[in-house]
Design a binder for these strands. Structure first.
Length: 109
DNA sequence: TCCCTGACTAGAG
DNA sequence: CCTCTAGCCAGGG
């Protein structure tokens, strides 16, 4: 598929796949990296279609490190379990030490 | 094409 | 740090 054919969604998927193990990023960071800094909501919306794909959607949270999308995962705490499995501490649906594990595609990629 | 929805964000108080 | 408001824009009906 040609880059021009890649929809915003697919670009989001490509970036999401590159999130390192044990790290997290925000919807806004991905959107900014794609040149659409104000389309953060679309990134989240895109993740909705990431089901069935090799995308670590659990590593994408909002800018506060809050697991806003956990209700889109199976069960009530799957997202948190996946994060903790990577060594990320999560309390009350919120990631701890966010600034330490935060990964910004615009800077790191 | 218009209208509504949403896993968001930045700014103001 | 918290709450409320406005702006954002791709999809689907």
């Amino acid at each position: 598929m040609q880059p021009e054919t890649l929809s915003f969604f697919e670009k989001v998927y490509e970036v999401a796949k590159k999130i390192p193990y044990g790290r997290v990023t925000s919807y806004g960071a991905i959107a900014k990296y794609l040149g659409a800094g104000k389309s953060a909501r679309i990134v989240g919306y895109a993740m909705n279609g990431s089901r069935g794909k090799d995308i670590p959607a659990h590593r994408v949270v909002n800018r506060k490190g809050l697991l806003t999308g956990k209700h889109h995962f199976e069960g009530t705490n799957l997202m948190q379990q996946l994060l903790e499995n990577e060594g990320i501490e999560v309390v009350e649906n919120q990631i701890q030490n966010l600034e330490t594990i935060y990964w910004d595609p615009a800077k790191e990629l």
